[in-house]
């Protein structure tokens, strides 16, 4: 019983190692990119289009719309980062229906890596939007006394992001593995379905929270009010 796919190591040379997390991540990347290339290789600009193109248009358009709804006025600027977050986490959860697959998001290393990416991306987007002075002044609001609390808030929400996703994904596979040993027939299937749903919700929550953080940083001058839609999903 592995707690994390990190523990499945295929090859190691000193510090370098090739564990299941990395390999499955590559696999996911391969599938995503290959699928994208296959579909976008012969894109139709007209009114008639293939089902796959339609699917991708809905997915990409939906993500862009979500980003816009959160309050970022130029969703295409953030689509690459946030869209990839969502697609990666969602596909990682989706492939749990494949036997023998371990979602890379079930590894705290992966979720920490994603959270670190968000942690770095938020100030980058904020600075690119408002300039460094304006961005860093936010940490002194309402008074300079709040500076440590603001920094702690920044760090803790990154940690929360990583742990939340890890816990949910890991628990899904863990519960499934445990149930397979106890009640091997119908119940794991129901749980697997539930796991798929949970994975999708987690993907949504992870990416929407990243969007909210970025939006908050990008709109530093405006009051920091997170949209209601995101608050509903936050505790998990």
């Amino acid at each position: 019983m592995h707690l994390s796919p990190d523990e499945i190591i295929f090859w190691q040379y000193g510090f370098f190692k090739l564990n299941a997390t990395i390999v499955y991540t590559w696999g996911l990347m391969g599938v995503l990119v290959a699928g994208s290339i296959l579909v976008t290789r012969k894109l139709s600009m007209g009114l008639q289009r293939t089902r796959w193109q339609n699917l991708l248009e809905i997915v990409v358009g939906g993500i862009a719309k979500q980003i816009e709804e959160v309050g970022l006025r130029q969703p295409r600027h953030y689509l690459g980062f946030i869209g990839t977050l969502f697609l990666f986490v969602a596909s990682a959860a989706l492939f749990t229906i494949v036997p023998g697959y371990e979602p890379p998001t079930g590894s705290l290393s992966t979720t920490a890596a994603l959270a670190i990416c968000v942690f770095v991306a938020v100030p980058l987007f904020g600075i690119s939007e408002n300039g460094p002075a304006e961005y860093f002044r936010e940490y002194l609001q309402p008074t300079f006394i709040m500076l440590p609390f603001n920094i702690i808030s920044e760090l803790s929400r990154t940690l929360a992001l990583a742990v939340r996703l890890f816990g949910n994904m890991m628990s899904g596979t863990m519960i499934l593995a445990i149930l397979l040993t106890i009640t091997p027939y119908i119940f794991p299937i129901a749980l697997s379905v539930l796991g798929l749903l949970t994975g999708m919700v987690q993907a949504y929550i992870f990416s929407i929270l990243a969007t909210v953080y970025i939006a908050a940083a990008a709109h530093a001058r405006e009051p920091k009010i997170e949209p209601d839609t995101t608050i509903k999903h936050e505790p998990r």
Partner: peptide
């Protein structure tokens, strides 16, 4: 639970995936 090499590798992987997508 956190393997730092994997974290770095996943960050790189993620950035590559961002670029590719």
């Amino acid at each position: 639970l956190i393997d730092w090499f994997t974290v770095v590798a996943q960050v790189v992987n993620f950035l590559i995936l961002v670029w590719l997508l």
